[in-house]
Amino acid sequence: MSWLNKVRNSISFIQKRDTPDHLWIKCPGCSEMLFVKEYEDNLSVCPRCEHHGRIGADARLNMLMDPGYVLLPAPVVREDPLKFRDSKKYTDRMKSARAANPHPDAYTNAVGTIEGKKAVLGVQDFGFMGGSMGMAVGNAFVAGIERAVRERCAYVAVTAAGGARMQEGILSLMQMPRTTVAIQRLHAVGLPYIVVLTDPTTGGVTASYAMLGDVQIAEPNALIGFAGQRVIQDTIREQLPEGFQRAEYLYQHGMLDMVVHRRDLKARLATVIDYLTAARVA
C-alpha cells in the first residue's frame, strides 16, 4: 500500500448524504436537471427549453378534463390470439406492462366535460408497450366513438404510439379500417372528431385515426410520421430537411391545423368543440 493510500484511509470522512433518485429528472431536450415536482407542476414541460415530456393516461385526463369525469370500462378482447413469442412470451410482456401501468391496455376513454363542453376523450399511453395498437386499442377507440354518438358530443383522441402491435400480426392491422369506419359513423350523425397528436405518433396509428380529425392539433416538437426518417432517407436516397416529421414542419406544410402548447391545450380544445358543435346544436 502506498503512503498516499495509508494517509487517505486514516482520515475520517463525513458520510455522504444520499439524494433520492426520484427528486430529479433530466430533461430529454436540453439535458438540464430539474426538480421532479417543478417539472410535474409545469405539466411535464421543461421550464428551461419548453420540451414537452411524455405523460401517462391519467395525467393527460386530469390535465384536459374537468373534475368529475368518468372512465369508460376497458373492452375485453381475446389475449394472445396468435400465441406469439419473440425473446419473451406476449403474455409475459402484457403482465409486465400491466404491472407498470394503471390501465389494462394502451388506450383509455373517459366521458365528461372540457371547460364545460361535453366530450368523450380517448388517451393513448406510450408508456404501455409503446402505445402500440392492438385489438384492445381498436376496441377501446370504437367504444369511445359509440359513447360519443350516444352522448351526442364530440370525440377527442390524444395519440401517442409506435404503431401497430406486432405480437397480434394482421389482427392489429385490421384496427386501421375498423377505426376509420367508426369515425365515419361519428360524422354520419354530425358530430366532430378532434385529434391531438403527441410525441411520438407513428406507424399504423398515423396511417389511420391519427390523421383523420376534423381538426388536427399537435403539441410542440412532437414526432409525427409513418415510417422512420432513416428508412425514408435510405429509400429515396436524399437528405431530409431539418425538423422533418416534427409538428412545426408538418404545420408549415399543411398537415396540421395548429400547434398548441400544453398549458393552452384545454382551453383550445374547449374553443374548437364549441365552434364545431354550435352550428349543429342550433
Results as ranks from 00 to 15, higher is better:
136 A>F: 02
154 A>N: 09
86 D>H: 08
270 A>C: 10
117 K>D: 05
217 I>C: 02
90 Y>Q: 04
152 R>Y: 08
26 K>A: 12
44 S>R: 13
159 T>Y: 06
28 P>W: 07
165 R>K: 13
174 M>A: 12
106 A>D: 04
245 Q>T: 10
155 Y>M: 11
46 C>E: 09
122 G>M: 05
41 D>T: 05
3 W>Q: 13
3 W>F: 11
35 F>H: 10
78 R>G: 08
29 G>D: 09
197 L>E: 05
5 N>G: 09
137 V>W: 12
177 P>M: 07
244 F>Q: 02
250 L>G: 00
53 G>Q: 04
206 T>R: 11
191 L>Q: 01
100 A>T: 04
258 M>Y: 08
153 C>T: 13
65 M>F: 10
142 V>T: 12
198 T>W: 01
249 Y>P: 00
214 D>F: 03
113 T>W: 08
149 V>R: 15
105 D>T: 09
260 V>A: 08
86 D>N: 09
256 L>M: 10
68 G>W: 08
207 A>R: 10
58 D>V: 10
72 L>R: 07
69 Y>N: 05
251 Y>D: 07
39 Y>F: 15
115 E>R: 15
256 L>Q: 04
240 L>T: 07
63 M>Q: 15
159 T>Q: 05
18 D>C: 06
90 Y>C: 04
17 R>K: 15
275 Y>P: 00
280 R>K: 14
137 V>L: 11
127 G>I: 01
171 L>E: 08
189 V>F: 01
101 N>L: 06
176 M>C: 11
81 P>A: 00
220 P>A: 02
282 A>Q: 14
